[in-house]
């Protein structure tokens, strides 16, 4: 196997996989997020989303503004459940 190009370190998603699903017709950021779990790992998409936005723009001819960004969901960084308890 050739050396992978890692797009998302949290879920171990490669650029090859991203390209494959885009060419199968899943051409929105939301589509790819749900298929590949991009941006759903502990880093909240900080690394992968900008790369995927650019790849989508390149492959679909859309502008990045059109492609957009995922909905912002709390928390911005993961927090231990124990931090929400009172003891």
């Amino acid at each position: 196997m050739s050396d992978p190009i890692i797009v998302c370190r949290c879920e171990d998603v490669t650029l090859q996989e991203v390209r494959e699903w885009i060419s199968r017709g899943y051409t929105s950021l939301e589509d790819l997020r749900r298929i590949l779990r991009l941006g759903m790992g502990p880093c909240q998409g900080r690394t992968c989303i900008p790369i995927v936005q650019r790849e989508l723009a390149r492959m679909t001819g859309k502008s990045i503004d059109e492609i957009g960004s995922p909905t912002g969901r709390p928390p911005a960084v993961g927090v231990e459940l124990g931090a929400f308890t009172s003891d």
Binding site: Q44, R73, P74, E80, L81
Partner: peptide, 11 residues
């Protein structure tokens, strides 16, 4: 044990 596990997303 979940005290040590991080909440990651809320929707």
């Amino acid at each position: 044990a979940l005290r040590e596990v991080r909440l990651l997303r809320h929707w």
